[in-house]
Design a protein around this nucleic acid. Sequence first.
DNA 1: ATGTATGCAAAACATTTGCACCTGG
DNA 2: CCAGGTGCAAATGTTTTGCATACAT
Lengths: 143, 143
Amino acid sequence: MENQDIRKAGLKVTLPRVKILQILEGSTSRHLSAEDVYRHLLERGEEIGLATVYRVLTQFEAAGLVEKHNFEGGHSVFELNRGSHHDHIVCSQCGRVEEFVDELIEDRQRVVAQERGFGIKGHSLIIFGECRRPDCPNRPPEG
Amino acid sequence: MENQDIRKAGLKVTLPRVKILQILEGSTSRHLSAEDVYRHLLERGEEIGLATVYRVLTQFEAAGLVEKHNFEGGHSVFELNRGSHHDHIVCSQCGRVEEFVDELIEDRQRVVAQERGFGIKGHSLIIFGECRRPDCPNRPPEG
DNA sequence: ATGTATGCAAAACATTTGCACCTGG
DNA sequence: CCAGGTGCAAATGTTTTGCATACAT
């Protein structure tokens, strides 16, 4: 049960924390901004303040429960940490986000860091592209 | 002469633009925030507004003269585009930034994008680590 | 009980914009 | 001359914080 995750993080199991975790689990788009989470909560009739959403997401991040990404556009997005690392490819036109893992890229990063005397702590790889989805505003010419 | 770069970008060669370009060229740290550029200008006695710095940097980015990066921490940094693409490895402790290129990583990104039907437009790869510099607050235990 | 968490409103930032004035070509 | 550029101040959008109240354990 996910309440254990909250407790294991050294946090009290409060209603806002449980609800926010549920939003992150239940949402179709895995990458949500604080504002997104807040809006989903309102839609479900939950009376939780935006400040609390920010505080909880920050705590969840510190606890390793969620990851925070700085995609372009002045705001951060959060996603549930499902244990498996992955990178992201995002469509510049429609904002669609897909995840991927490439072991070769992972390997090379370790080499690069080692060559420069860095202890590697993590990384952020985002490929910006244009997808071919029918609903993407940047659909290629001939359709 | 760099004034040609400004002109080729379709922009008038104004004092603020020239000065900002000089700051970007002359600074020891290649990665500067808008605020950083503004501060350097003040130090040199230039009377240029922060809003102008933002506007000019944005125009330079659109023109391909500079690149904008979203390192962690709520603000963007800009660096002069010297023609050669590279990625970054930053020290989480002291903020030091080094640049690197790895062709294997570049190749694999193209493959990943192609496999998913994305036209690749660019990417952002930042490795977070801990460097071993003597002035780094996170120097390893035995020194 | 009691130390944490929360809600609200205000503050703190980074960045953008409106507008009257200035300037490069 | 005049379109485009600039400075300033105000607006914006995101995230953080202070503080009195409410809640989990």
